[in-house]
Design a binder for these strands. Structure first.
Lengths: 168, 168
DNA sequence: CTTGCTGCAAAAGTTTTGCACACGT
DNA sequence: ACGTGTGCAAAACTTTTGCAGCAAG
């Protein structure tokens, strides 16, 4: 967490991310439009994992009108700019996570409620490096997803088993 | 050719898996049909990760005609019977992996070729248990996906960057 | 002014479902 | 015989794409 000037751990570096994105776009010959700015801001406001459609709904609720295609196109650019990453927790649709501030890359998923919690698991890093080198791989990134029963669901365990599809 | 009491480590326990599936189906009031048997056998022949459509194609090539809906319906039952599990490596479609013989639950994905290698990483187990308990979760299962560059791709690194979409 | 961007509508892709008929128990 | 399974066709769903007008550099 070596930041150039100041380290606010609550506000997730809004200015830098915007600068990173603008630099990336310019370098690719792409344009920084108001839609892209609004989507980036919406993304920066997410503290945990989010879905494309969720983003669209929330932006429209706030009065920002963006089309679904533009959301997807911008998410793709944000991925290539290494500002967000895809998470793949659910087979139904993609999830995304901000990756520019901190990058947990580890997730706890409750198999009852489908809630997703990003958690820190720094020890995993060295293990993945070791495994990669054992197999001759050059490590790039990794993702650890753990499925289990959240404390809340353990408490409500005697209720009807909450008709949710169990994902494993 | 399979005698009741013999353990070959190459053949991945065909009889047991079939028995497990039949027991599961009976217990659920479901039926063991020839299609389900054929799909189970096709699944048991897969040594690594596979896709639903791949399974369909391979079965048809061998002369077994099954419909796509039946494949999906049967895969769902196999999941609930804990014979296979979903892997979620690619946003495009689901991947599945046999989980009844051995369960690696760790994967090396080459970001150039998209090849997927299942690898053993037993040390991860105790870490995930620790992380779960740190957060009050009751651990159920987990999955570790590592992205990197395979030895083969590192060798061919100077070629054109193989127009593949990089998944992260 | 040139080039890329947006929104609409529609396409593409995987996965699911309704229904009539067939099969396992 | 009963109830469940199968295949077909079509729906549902997320994500992508073609195109005409619009906006950023």
């Amino acid at each position: 967490m070596a930041d150039p000037a100041q380290k606010s751990s609550d506000e997730p570096l809004i200015e830098p991310a915007c600068a990173v994105f603008r630099r990336f776009l310019k370098q690719q010959g792409l344009k920084f439009t108001s839609e892209r700015a609004k989507i980036l801001n919406a993304v920066l406001s997410k503290s945990s994992v989010f879905e494309a459609d969720q983003l669209l709904t929330e932006m429209r609720d706030v009065g920002h009108s963006v089309s679904r295609p533009t959301i997807y196109r911008t998410l793709k650019h944000l991925r290539h700019a290494n500002i967000i990453r895809q998470v793949l927790i659910d087979a139904k649709q993609s999830h995304y996570q901000l990756s520019i501030g901190q990058d947990p890359q580890s997730y706890l998923v409750c198999i009852d409620t489908n809630e997703i919690f990003a958690v820190a698991a720094p020890e995993i890093d060295e293990f993945t490096r070791k495994i990669c080198s054992d197999h001759g791989f050059e490590p790039v990134s990794h993702r650890l997803i753990m499925y289990g029963v959240s404390p809340k669901s353990q408490a409500a365990e005697d209720d009807e088993s909450s008709g949710n599809e169990v994902l494993r």
